[in-house]
């Protein structure tokens, strides 16, 4: 069975990949790619339901085993079930569901991101204390200069500084970002290849 699973993974991966590169030469590969991708999307959708079920199980267990935190878990389960049931029945365009998103999801998410404004500054301060090597110093100096360059002031942009800094940091960071992106792409390529070659088999528990 494990072999069959592996074969299926490799076959579907290779087919999709062939569709990527050889679709022009072999149109059927393109079609096969779309079919497989469609299946994968369906399965990922189904996986979402299973994932949510897992979420529920975990919190049900929490309610059972950790009375102290059971309230939060209960809130989560209720909110989840309520939203899901209502949403499945009413549909995502329903105004009440929109209300739930607007009143709960967006404010909380935005607030969580807003927390970062303080957290990140604090992290910079700690970084200077914790790891004052050349790279960290350059990192912090760049942050400060970049912020100064984009900072609105009562007198407008700081003369010369904005263009100079933005130009310099733009070039340097562009180069660095390109290198980082290429590196990440390389890593992704090799990781994907390991899966397609059957070396890594996360689906088979290997």
């Amino acid at each position: 069975m494990r072999i069959l699973v592996t074969v299926l993974a490799i076959a579907s991966g290779v087919t999709v990949l062939a569709g990527y590169f050889l679709a022009g030469a072999v149109p059927v590969l393109d079609q096969a790619r779309f079919i497989l991708t469609d299946w994968a999307v369906i399965l990922a959708g189904m996986a979402a339901l299973i994932g949510v079920a897992n979420l529920v199980f975990v919190h049900i267990e929490k309610v059972r085993s950790q009375p102290g935190t059971s309230l939060y878990s209960a809130v989560l389960i209720i909110a989840l079930f309520g939203t899901t049931l209502y949403g499945v029945i009413a549909g995502p365009e329903d105004s009440f569901l929109n209300f739930a998103v607007t009143a709960i999801v967006i404010p909380v998410e935005a607030s969580l991101l807003a927390l970062l404004a303080v957290t990140l500054v604090y992290a910079c301060i700690r970084l200077a204390r914790r790891r004052a090597d050349v790279m960290s110093v350059i990192f912090l100096v760049t942050i400060v200069l970049f912020l100064l360059a984009v900072m609105p002031t009562p007198i407008g942009p700081i003369p010369v500084l904005d263009r100079l800094i933005l130009g310099m940091t733009g070039v340097v960071s562009g180069a660095g970002a390109r290198g980082l992106l290429i590196g990440v792409a390389l890593g992704t390529l090799l990781t994907g290849l390991r899966v397609l070659l059957g070396i890594d088999r996360p689906y088979g528990g290997n």
Binding site: A40, A44, G187, T188, T191, R194, D200
Partner: peptide, 17 residues
Amino acid sequence: LLTGRGGSALAGLAMLR
């Protein structure tokens, strides 16, 4: 996994294993 960000997820899984 169905986006280009799946590569890092697979790497994370390998580490987790």
